[in-house]
Write a protein that binds this DNA or RNA. Structure first.
Lengths: 365, 365
DNA sequence: TTCGGCGCTCGAATCGATTCGAGCGCATGG
DNA sequence: CCATGCGCTCGAATCGATTCGAGCGCCGAA
């Protein structure tokens, strides 16, 4: 029905409202924005006229052109929405961002990375280079972000990167002590007497392969987070075998653990370092399935400190990262940059939480 | 530091690029947009000039004013980000929307419901009335959306509501056969001989209370989804007691089930209808904990058809709703309305999936 | 009576790009 | 040699609101 379209075309403008109220457009504008001195009588007259014309307030497009601000901050994900939002850490971070940004006038625009994918001539979604954003937060930033960063910089859009490669550029970063924290967890295991330790790792790159980690794969790895946590574990257990899951999911942890625990009991690992709590939960499930008692026969340690829904009665030993706080920090950083202030990168520290999934190495043999 | 601000001010404009390339602004515009006839030589000259000036392309704000479109679609949540994104169904739906919208030039702006909260004079985030959106999708729409809908309508923004109250208005809706589907599940239980059935329900309103459902609470309930599913279950088991969880989480299901299963074995329910798969997973955990075998001593049925990560080895009997498809339908609806077409509401049907968590009523007694 | 000051309103410029019809130059056909 | 057509480029209007300095009317003080 084109009638709809027509009614759409004829939406009233501020000028029309002003005319009806018998004032100038400038005055009407002031009446709406609340800024500047307008007599109550006039304001009321304008609002009344607006009501009569069914005028819903100033057009945000025009407003943002004139003001030079759209009030929108982009959040750039490197995966499709579904994958990104299955990660509780990302969600917590996002929540932190939105919480902080809520205090100024800003909405959150979800963007996926500027896609160079072979999409043919299919236009791609609003891209970084095309979105009316005042600032941007890059989440889980990989080398492929380089281009995006260049674009944003050229546009003069303030950028904050969460978990990028430190020193990449002079970009403001929100970092996590992945290596040190993992090392601390590993040392906990070492103190408990463990020597045969295996690692269940996150993806090394965008391929999301389930496979043993080899030096070649490490060299080709692009995920800073995975690499750092891996390095941290191997700082303590240099020869620990590692197996990558195809994502941070319970099921992936289970599959990886089944692989790693398949050997003879005698040379089976006595502890597993998982790079996320979801993976750790999967490791525990696999152990249950194989009749291996946690923590008596197998210690498990995670990373993240999300409470995995349904893991009860286990209280996972893990490294708690302040995900929401990181999000808030990112939000604050964007805010500050928008206000024209200089902002420094920030390093966050994970806190070791000792639950009931780690125990001294079994004395058997 | 105002120096930053200054550099920001001096960003080049299309006009500057045009001047440098020795062409008019209109030509430069054409060169960028790719529309219209521009000689290759000219286009190259313009692009070259742009490169030299470090011009990153047309300002999206100005563009959207002129074009009358921002290329952004708002997704309106009624909760804070963290809560909404913990629900796998919402995420799947969101993914569907973004997938469909990706095919046109549209980004997703996450908005939380137009907050009338007592925030004092704190400005609130970009609101529905203030966001540069071309269309909007209301998710999990409650009566409080009325106001938002009115605002959007006044602005002439096409709106699609997912799971609203049918017939609310003449709004385009994406609906689910909640009542009928639940009834089908209940009938399955009835056919297996169950008569003592209990219900673990989602929240009835925004209070998110853990409590038994009473007629009064039903009368005051605002969540259409919860009410419909409840009605469907009681179509078959009119006297089934129901207990609400404080959200769709495994842990809430567990708590609710502990409550419902606390009685003597003799008058304990032999089946539980959970209003979501996460709740159902919690019910199963509670049963394990109480030493009640599923499905031998307790049948459990869910709703949603999300594969609950880590529920293995159970294969939940449930009603599979096409969440992603609903999202895609919403996306398509917005697209169509943007194109000026008429769009009809759509009702989706859940499919019954028989897993291994339901069985005939135990013959004991 | 006149002037300074105050409070409100108005004009006009501006934000940066898009769009469309007009115009111009060149080549080809009659 | 002139008319017609074609391909490209340009001007000017437009999108809708915001902003800021100027202006106007009125009141109290000198």
């Amino acid at each position: 029905m084109t009638a709809v379209d027509n009614s759409v075309e004829h939406r009233p403008t501020l000028a029309a409202v002003a005319a009806r109220a018998g004032v100038s457009a400038s005055t009407a504008s002031l009446a709406f924005s609340g800024t500047g001195p307008v007599s109550d009588a006039t304001r009321e007259r304008v609002l009344q006229a607006a009501r009569e014309l069914n005028y819903a307030g100033p057009d945000p497009r025009a407003r943002s052109l004139r003001r030079g601000r759209s009030g929108i901050v982009g959040v750039v994900l490197e995966e499709r929405v579904r994958d990104a939002f299955r990660d509780p850490i990302k969600i917590a971070t996002l929540d932190g961002i939105s919480e902080e940004l809520g205090s100024i006038d800003a909405g959150l625009l979800v963007l996926t990375e500027v896609a160079g994918e072979a999409e043919g001539d299919e236009k791609n979604p609003v891209t970084l280079s095309d979105a009316p954003i005042d600032g941007a937060v890059l989440m889980g930033c990989s080398p492929r972000f380089e281009e995006s960063i260049a674009t944003l910089r050229a546009r003069g859009v303030p950028v904050v990167a969460i978990e990028g490669n430190p020193g990449d550029d002079d970009i403001v970063m929100i970092l996590q002590d992945n290596r040190e924290a993992t090392r601390r967890g590993a040392e906990h295991l070492k103190a408990l007497g463990h020597t045969r330790v295996a690692i269940v790792a996150l993806s090394l790159d965008r391929d999301h392969r389930r496979a043993l980690v080899t030096p070649e794969r490490i060299a080709a790895g692009t995920s800073a987070t995975t690499l750092e946590r891996l390095a941290g574990a191997r700082d303590v257990f240099p020869d620990a075998p590692a197996y990558t899951g195809a994502g941070s999911y319970v099921e992936e942890g289970r599959l990886a653990a089944l692989e790693l625990l398949s050997g003879e009991a005698s040379d089976r690992p006595t502890a597993i370092i998982a790079q996320s709590d979801l993976l750790a939960a999967g490791v525990i499930r696999a152990a249950e399935e194989l009749g291996i008692a946690v923590p008596e026969q197998l210690s498990v340690i995670g990373f993240d400190g999300v409470k995995v829904d349904g893991l009860w009665p286990y209280d996972l030993t893990t490294l708690v990262q302040p995900a929401a706080e990181k999000g808030r920090a990112a939000g604050r950083a964007v805010k500050a940059m928008l206000a024209g202030n200089d902002v420094a990168s920030r390093l966050f520290t994970a806190e070791f939480h000792e639950g009931n999934t780690t125990a001294p190495v079994p004395v058997v043999e």
